[in-house]
Amino acid sequence: MKKNWWKIVCVVLLFYTVIAGFMMDVPRKPILNETIRNQYFHVCMWFGMLALMSISLYYSLRFLKTSNIADDVYASQSANVAILYGVLGLITGSIWAKYTWSEWPTFSLKGWWINDVKLNGAAICMLIYFAYTLLRNSLDDDTKRAKVSAVYNVFAYVLMIVFLLIVPRLTDSLHPGNGGNPGFAKYDLDNKMRMVFWPAVLAWILLGLWIASIAIRVKLLNAKKLNLIDLSPLDQE
C-alpha cells in the first residue's frame, strides 16, 4: 500500500479535475465560451503524451547501455500508452475545433481536420510512433527488435522535438497561443483556471504511468512464462 500512494493521488486528482473542471467558473471569452474547459482534458493529453514519450526515450537509452530486455519492455509499453494519449488528444482537439474554428466565416473547409501547424505536429508525432510500433512488429528476434527499435526511438524522438520547436515558427497558426490568438499562457494567468489545470496535468500523467505500469507488468509476466528473461530481481519488489 505504501508504494501505491501515487495511485490514490491520481484518482483523487482525476475526480477533482472532472468535478472542478466542469463546475468551477471559467473566464468568458468570445468564441471559446465554455469550450475553454477542454484545456483540462485536451492540453493535458499532450503533456501526458510527451511525458510518456520521454520515459520511453529514457528506457531506450538505458537499453542501449545495458542490453536488458526488461528496459525494452518499459520503452515499448510507454510508447504504446503515449500513442493512446495522442489519439485521445486528437479526438478531444478535433471535437473542440469543430465547434470553435469551423464556425468562423473565413473558413471554407468545415471538416473535422484543419490544416494547421499544431494539428500537423500532433499528427506527425502519431505517425512517428505508429512507425515505431510497425518497426517493432516487423522484427522477429527479441534482442534485434529491442536494439533496432531503441535506436529508431532515440533518432525519431530528437527529430520530433526539432519538428515541434521549428515548424510552428515557420508559419502562422490558428491554434490558441499562436499568431495573435489568445493562448494557453494567457489563460494561465487566470488563477482559477490554473488551480484546476496544473493538478489536471499531474493527474493525467499519473494515470498514463499507471496504465503503462500495468501494461509493462503484463508483458514482463508473459516474457517470464516463456522464460525469456530472468525476473528474480523484480519479484522482490
Binding site: L135, L139, V148
Partner: peptide
C-alpha cells in the same frame, strides 16, 4: 541502416523516414 535490419524494408524505409524528414522538407 535501421530498415535493413527488418523484413519488408522498402516500404518500411518510407514509413520510418517521411515523418522525421518533415521539418527539413518544410524548411
Amino acid at each position: 541502416a535501421i530498415a535493413a535490419k527488418a523484413a519488408n524494408n522498402f516500404s518500411l524505409m518510407a514509413i520510418l523516414s517521411f515523418p522525421i524528414m518533415l521539418p527539413l522538407i518544410l524548411t
